[in-house]
């Protein structure tokens, strides 16, 4: 089996690059082939890039709370391109205001994400999750959609 491919990038009008570069490095070091879309992306950028590289997973970051606005139909962009089962992860500071981890996780699960890391800096944990999810094959969430 070839190396798993992961598309990463920042969604919305956020231009924070430090976290983005760190995630790129972390995933590369974990043995993934990483495609970095950098900043100012829309859901269609992630979906189309996933098609171009035949990605196994997509990591979306948002730091300024815009995530909720941009992500609400995230999975459907992948379904429309005929790649419904790509693993979708999202992390950062995803919503404006104070909301519980569970609420945010539930919300983004509805948007079609497999894993949600709201206000968590645990990159190692996310990579462990990704390895585990990949060993099961593709996205569980996809079937629900």
């Amino acid at each position: 089996m070839s190396v798993a491919r992961v598309v990463i990038g920042v969604i919305g009008d956020d231009i924070h690059v430090v976290g983005n570069r760190i995630i790129q490095l972390a995933l590369s070091e974990a043995g993934f082939e990483v495609f970095n879309l950098l900043t100012r992306n829309r859901p269609e950028h992630f979906a189309q890039a996933a098609l171009e590289v035949n990605a196994d997973a997509v990591f979306v970051s948002s730091l300024n709370g815009e995530g909720e606005f941009w992500c609400s139909d995230f999975r459907s962009h992948f379904v429309a391109l005929g790649i419904p089962s790509v693993l979708l992860y999202v992390g950062g500071n995803l919503v404006v205001g104070r909301r519980s981890q569970e609420d945010v996780a539930r919300l983004f699960a509805q948007f079609g994400f497999d894993r949600v890391y709201h206000q968590s800096a645990d990159i190692d944990g996310a990579i462990a999750d990704l390895l585990e999810d990949l060993s099961h094959g593709h996205s569980e969430r996809a079937r629900a959609h």
Partner: peptide
């Protein structure tokens, strides 16, 4: 060990 972890500490 991992570069990214060190880099986070370094930054």
């Amino acid at each position: 060990g991992k570069t990214f972890r060190s880099l986070l500490v370094d930054i």
